[in-house]
Write a protein that binds this DNA or RNA. Sequence first.
DNA 1: GCCCAGGTATAAA
DNA 2: TTTATACATGGG
Length: 289
Amino acid sequence: MEYKITDRGIEIKLSDRFDLKNTFDCGQCFRWTENPDGSYSGIVRGKYARVVSDGGVIIIEGSSEDDFLNIWKGYFDLENDYNEIRREISELCPKLVCALDSMDGIRILSQEPWEALCSFIISQNNNIPRIKGIVTRLCENFGERGEYGYSFPTADRIAQCTEEELSPLRSGFRAAYIADAARRVSCGEVVLENMYTLPIDECRAQLMKIKGVGPKVAECTLLYGLHRLDAFPIDVWMKRALSTLFSGISVSDLGRYAGVAQQYIFHYSRLESEKLKTENESSVLQHMP
DNA sequence: GCCCAGGTATAAA
DNA sequence: TTTATACATGGG
């Protein structure tokens, strides 16, 4: 990864790819919005940036060099080479090549741990547009107002709220879960920062003490919030995908990038199920009088 | 109105 | 240990 400072912002040259749509709109994050020109705007750790992809170069507009080095470089995982990661996954599981090819240029973001935990508690039994709405209201109601928008509220701030005070979020039954997570993080019972390095099973067990956090939310928190690329899903859809689309592969075959592989598998299985759906619809149409 | 959404808590087999 | 339901809300 090379970068230089220009009048447009930080210009980055990568040896691998960074596809903005695949990265920001794949369901791993809920606070980046696409602009009409295809760039994306977002706020991380209270800092605003606009990310532009321009002929193989990525430009982070509105970032100082300090912010780039301290925030964006790690957040966008720019020092990992996804060509290498993909090569390792495909060598471990050659059957996954079609899944790897189905989503070129995705990067696993290294989000703020508390934001990821909170976001994926909200994500359960929910759809992406509504998740985004609830997260937006969470920031508007309890985050810090900045020049370009709101920061994600701290666990301490949310811990002060009663369930009643969370009602403007319209998050339904998840309000109690958000409150419980905030309380446990705020009082130090759950220390997210320790989970960058703790054994993955221990992390999962600690997270699952929180009400409303099951295996899926724990995995997502670890993968997207603590950048544990080894955090593998023990989720029903994953088992189904591996037993149907990729029979013969088990989660333990996926190695140290199990979490990254999971992202590709998820996307691929979504594509396949949609393909199946349209095939069924057209065959139904064929039999219509 | 009905169905479903990157699930989880709870009760029951 | 595995399997069925309710859960709040809103987009399609």
